[in-house]
Computed example of a mutant assay.
Amino acid sequence: MNTPSVRAVRPEREILTRQRLPYFVGVSGETVGAQGLSMHLVVIPPGARAEPHLHRGHETAIYVLEGRVETRFGADLSQSVVSEAGDFLFIPPDEPHIAINLSATEPARAIVARNDPAERDRVEPYTPPPAAGG
Rank of each mutant, 00 (worst) to 15 (best):
F73Y: 15
S83G: 07
V81T: 02
E14P: 13
A48C: 14
E14W: 05
Q79G: 08
A85F: 09
E30R: 13
T31P: 03
D87E: 10
V81W: 00
V42F: 06
E30A: 09
T60K: 07
L21W: 03
H53P: 01
D87Q: 05
G67R: 07
T31R: 06
E66R: 09
Q79H: 15
P52W: 07
E66F: 01
G47E: 03
L65Y: 12
H40V: 15
P45C: 12
D87M: 03
L37E: 13
Y23K: 00
T60V: 06
S38T: 04
E70H: 04
E30V: 13
R18F: 03
R13N: 09
A75K: 06
T31H: 00
G33P: 04
Q35K: 12
T31A: 01
S78D: 14
L37R: 08
L77W: 07
T71W: 08
E51P: 01
F90S: 02
G74P: 10
V43E: 15
I44T: 02
R20G: 14
Q35V: 12
L77R: 09
F88H: 10
A61W: 11
A75I: 07
T60L: 04
T31W: 02
E70A: 15
L16E: 04
R18V: 15
L37V: 07
G33Y: 13
V32K: 00
H53Y: 00
V27P: 01
Q35T: 14
H53Q: 06
V82Q: 05
R18M: 12
M39A: 12
I91D: 02
E59M: 09
P22Y: 00
G57Y: 07
